[in-house]
């Protein structure tokens, strides 16, 4: 039973990270109908910037928590600028182009970012400094550390904040209006370009936070971390129903749980034939199964709610 609980906890932690990244995909998709393939690389850039900032600041002897806070803010700011730039350069000129054109520029941007990161930060794995307390807690037979608790807490806070922003503020209303019908929104006086820019920046800020969380959790940063995480988060967004905020959160957490439980139990389920290295297969099978029965994801049909 404690193994089960442990897997659930691990899944929730992983799932919170997926959910944060998935929100970035889903927000952009909701507004532009576009898969922002470069989003995973934004996560990576966030982690890398945070790494550099915290290395610099730790050398000055500042307390770790303060360092983390500053690193977080710098990384979020950097990613917001990056997200803004990506949208301006690679997507905005193609808004009326054939559907696949922005997909290719997105792929191009992600290749560029990955290789820029390789040039700046090198090919090697970097150790992410320990900035958070690392106490262990036992919870009904399962073990969880402070970093993981904080990850879940922060993810929860960010998601609540985002929901409030989208549903309770003027900006959020503008976002929902643009998602629903861009030309009508424009006629009603919404500055579409501004709303889209802000959406990209918000998504990128969430990506930065997610990037730092993953790095803190595993203690490692690598230029390639973004693509795999991005892929998983995109899967999560689709699982929940892309374009739908609640769907992205649900999808993220579910995917985390599926992977974690899959890794833990797939061996037993298949009589030892499949090992934990099949956990991704398991996740994709679940995704395909869900889409067969609900072709637009778990919460995909509630179109009116997307942001």
């Amino acid at each position: 039973m404690d193994i089960f609980l442990q897997q659930i906890l691990n899944g929730l932690v992983q799932g919170s990270v997926y959910a944060l990244v998935a929100l970035g995909y889903t927000m952009v998709y909701g507004i532009l109908g576009l898969i922002n393939f470069a989003h995973g690389e934004v996560v990576m850039v966030g982690a890398m910037v945070a790494l550099t900032v915290s290395q610099l600041l730790l050398a000055t002897g500042l307390p770790p928590l303060l360092v983390l806070l500053i690193a977080l803010m710098v990384a979020a700011a950097a990613c917001m600028v990056l997200g803004y730039g990506i949208e301006r350069i690679a997507y905005r000129p193609l808004r009326n182009a054939p559907r696949l054109a922005p997909l290719i520029t997105a792929i191009g941007v992600s290749i560029v970012l990955q290789n820029l990161a390789m040039i700046f930060w090198g090919r090697e794995y970097h150790a992410f400094p320990q900035l958070l307390p690392n106490g262990l807690h036992t919870l009904g037979g399962a073990v969880i550390n402070d970093v993981q608790l904080i990850i879940m807490l922060v993810a929860l806070l960010m998601m609540t904040g985002l929901m409030l922003l989208v549903h309770r503020t003027r900006l959020g209303r503008a976002m929902r209006a643009v998602a629903e019908n861009p030309s009508a929104a424009m006629l009603m006086g919404v500055d579409i370009n501004r709303v889209i820019s802000v959406t990209f920046m918000l998504g990128s800020a969430l990506a930065a936070v997610a990037g730092i969380m993953v790095s803190a959790n595993y203690g490692i940063v690598h230029y390639y971390m973004g693509s795999i995480l991005g892929l998983k988060a995109f899967t999560a967004a689709v699982l929940g129903g892309i374009g739908n905020l609640r769907g992205a959160m649900l999808g993220g957490v579910l995917l985390g749980l599926i992977e974690s439980l899959g890794a833990g139990y797939i061996g037993d389920l298949s009589g030892g034939f499949f090992g934990s290295n099949y956990q991704d297969v398991f996740a994709f099978f679940v995704l395909i199964a869900v889409l067969i029965f609900r072709p637009s994801g778990l919460l995909g049909e509630r179109v009116a709610e997307r942001a």
Partner: peptide, 15 residues
């Protein structure tokens, strides 16, 4: 550098 330029080329051509 090679892949960087390649990525840039993808973006520029599509634009």
């Amino acid at each position: 550098l090679r892949m960087l330029l390649f990525g840039l080329a993808l973006v520029v051509v599509m634009l």
